[in-house]
Design a protein around this nucleic acid. Structure first.
Lengths: 209, 209
DNA sequence: CGAGTTCTGGAGTGTCAACTCCAGAACTTG
DNA sequence: CAAGTTCTGGAGTTGACACTCCAGAACTCG
């Protein structure tokens, strides 16, 4: 990921240890935020010593960079089943419902892992902000792919801009996840996704879908 | 605001000192987050000593509770000119544009002060989460007032639910502010507000507005 | 098998954060 | 003005946190 690491050689076992550290750190950071996660906490959760952690990462910031990359991959990966089928209203609705269900299972905690990192890090860490913005760009592109397919098939009004709709949909989703965290329910998330998908539906050409 | 303070007597000067502390803390918290703001920082910014800070607040959490209340009042207060006139499409557009302009002036930094606090505090501090959810409820109600007025005047389709639209609009705005912080531009914010206001416009009964 | 590299345990260091204590100054009120 | 309360300065305490050091174990590769 175009980072600053000197890319040292890693033994198979070393790679496993490093992965274990990142996975443990990512889980803790999602639960408590970056500032709320100490390197001691990560060591305990990953079952490693301080020297191990600092063998693989120059400092806490380097670890958090790795956590950011892992988090983005996890978030996008978790949606893959749904994310590839966003080229119809039914597909969009199924995707939206899957996210609502997931948040209910998570007791409405945590918001979007990417969004939480943005909120904590973006202002005073430009590199982290750029990594996270890239993650959003990948997400937006995946949504845009489905909408562009609909548009190309003539199912969306010619005047509609599928890329702009994709960005708006992702943005609405982010707001919905934040309000879910604040309200401890999915009412706002459902309301905003209903509105966005309703808006898209109003752009569907009659007779298609 | 329905808090746990014993409500001691405050001298006029004492009140001024307390206000100075809260104002300084609120500014720092907006810039650096709660975890990134030390009580020493607040003391320096407010020009007070440690004993003063702890004379007015039992601990840091009590101070942050006060910061939350002040932040909500500031955010809602700052929009008052626009927030009272959301009973027309033009009013909604003016409000949206004012927020876009504000974020440009702020160099796309900071997101929504309320949203940032939600992201940092909601999961592990129930009282703070409830305070912030109340803030959102006040905001939502202000938007709903305008939309309900339009609905009552027959300018919105009878089937439209102004309260649900208000919640969706606030939620979309929150997502837009988060993406503004991530992307360092207002493209996503404008896209999602365009979509939401376009959706509302499609519910306006022909011949009105 | 043996030399060179990677990996790990454990104990330690310096800094900074939240919070405390107390005595005296400033203010309020009768 | 006097008694009582509120307010303030300054120095101190305690704990947590990021990070370091070094010696030895484990691993790789010819």
């Amino acid at each position: 990921m175009s980072s600053t690491e000197p890319a040292q050689r890693l033994t198979r076992k070393g790679q496993a240890t490093r992965d274990r550290i990142v996975a443990a750190a990512a889980r803790l950071v999602f639960e408590r935020g970056v500032a709320g996660t100490s390197t001691d906490d990560v060591q305990a959760a990953a079952g490693v010593s301080a020297s191990q952690l600092y063998h693989y990462f120059a400092d806490k910031r380097a670890l958090i960079r790795a956590v950011i990359a892992a988090t983005i991959d996890t978030v996008l990966g978790a949606q893959m089943p749904q994310l590839g089928r966003l080229d119809s209203l039914d597909g969009l609705r199924a995707w939206s419902e899957a996210i609502v269900d997931l948040k209910s299972q998570q007791d409405y905690q945590g918001g979007c892992p990417i969004g939480s990192l943005v909120s904590e890090l973006a202002d005073d860490w430009p590199e982290a902000r750029a990594d996270l913005a890239d993650g959003y760009a990948r997400w937006e592109a995946a949504i845009g792919e489905g909408l562009r397919a609909m548009h190309a098939r003539g199912e969306l009004a010619v005047g509609a801009d599928p890329d702009q709709l994709a960005l708006a949909t992702l943005t609405a989703l982010q707001g919905g996840l934040l309000l879910t965290q604040a309200r401890h329910d999915t009412v706002a998330l459902e309301a905003v996704m209903d509105a966005m998908l309703g808006h898209i539906a109003s752009l569907v050409t009659p007779g298609s879908g």
